[in-house]
């Protein structure tokens, strides 16, 4: 009765849509369905990759090493705040072709983990790449992306390491992808399939799907601060503030409080026995509703203060006493 009519309508619709179908690239489908789709994805990745890799750099500060991406001819480098660290400190920039350049850290946001580095002696042929300047717009869920960086630190024989994956979730501060990251990747670029920077590698947990990147609106939001070598939101990174208390956890918002993604080695949190995956719910008698609330609460304290931290571990409540440290 009604069914054949519907089928007819659908078939007609489908016929109309055929030409459109032909122009949808494989990477805009819900998932690649055939080997041909996979090959189309590979072709697009390899088309944009040389330029992406050329603009990806290694940053060395003292004994530590991270990644970054050069975004203009004047030598501006986007990186993670915890890589660039204290504004003004000396940074060695190593280009993909091995050339070593001098530079210095500009500003950083310790909360979103955005950071900038300026190359002070940019050569004329400095490889650069475009970055997404949106203030609001975010990559779509499922959008394909390419991660480049130096997992485990600089390795000249290996060069930068490439990963291809998809956006799992996106907020104005943070993108989450299934491009697997590791320490040393920090500050490295996440590209879309047009070779435009859409994120900066920031942090991970041991769960394979927890790969976090700073989203580009977070850079735009603080652009003046960053370019003027200021520090905001000093939660992580080389940002010494002697009279500010330090707990030593990196958390994200969770329905039940602040979920611990990382515990810094030798930090007050580590010494008190706070562990990854704990959900912090209270500091003394103050309820903690999320990552920011925890930062704010700790910020009010002084180093050496003793606080009671109430947390959920494997669903059970636990109270730990922590002696806070200094940043």
């Amino acid at each position: 009765m009604r069914m054949p009519k519907i089928i007819f309508t659908m078939a007609a619709l489908l016929a109309l849509l055929q030409p459109l179908h032909a122009v949808v690239p494989a990477w805009e489908k819900e998932a690649p369905e055939t080997v041909a789709d996979l090959l189309a994805i590979q072709k697009q990745v390899q088309k944009v990759l040389p330029k992406c890799m050329a603009a990806t750099v290694t940053l060395q500060m003292g004994g530590s090493s991270g990644s970054g991406v050069v975004v203009n001819k004047e030598g501006l480098v986007l990186t993670a705040g915890h890589v660039s660290g204290q504004p003004g400190r000396a940074v060695k920039i190593i280009l993909a072709d091995g050339r070593e350049l001098k530079g210095k850290a500009l500003g950083m946001n310790g909360k979103t983990d955005s950071g900038l580095v300026q190359i002070t002696d940019p050569p004329k042929d400095l490889p650069v790449i475009e970055y997404d300047k949106s203030k609001e717009e975010l990559p779509g869920i499922g959008q394909w992306c390419i991660a480049v960086g130096n997992p485990g630190g600089l390795d000249k024989d290996r060069g930068a390491v490439v990963r291809v994956g998809r956006i799992i979730s996106a907020t104005k501060d943070t993108l989450r992808t299934d491009c697997m990251l590791l320490g040393g990747d920090s500050g490295g670029p996440l590209f879309d399939f047009n070779g435009v920077v859409i994120g900066i590698h920031s942090r991970i947990s041991s769960r394979p799907d927890q790969n976090m990147h700073v989203a580009m609106p977070a850079f735009q939001e603080d652009w003046d601060t960053l370019i003027n070598s200021k520090v905001i939101g000093g939660r992580i990174g080389g940002n010494p503030q002697p009279d500010r208390a330090f707990l030593g956890v990196f958390t994200e918002d969770n329905e039940k409080g602040a979920l611990v993604l990382e515990v810094r080695e030798d930090s007050p949190a580590a010494k008190a026995g706070i562990q990854k995956d704990d959900i912090i719910q209270k500091v003394d008698d103050n309820e903690i509703k999320g990552a920011e609330a925890l930062t704010d609460e700790i910020r009010k304290m002084k180093p050496k203060a003793k606080v009671k931290v109430t947390l959920l571990r494997d669903g059970k409540e636990k109270v730990l006493e922590v002696e806070l440290g200094a940043r």
């Binding site: 489908l14 849509l17 819900e30 869920i141 994956g165 998809r166 956006i167």
Partner: peptide
Amino acid sequence: IMKFVRIFPLLLGAALTLNGATLSTKLRTD
């Protein structure tokens, strides 16, 4: 049918973002 339409992935993406949703595990690279 709709997924053949170019705009659909964008709409889907936007809708999921608004919901704060995440990419289904079956659609991830592994």
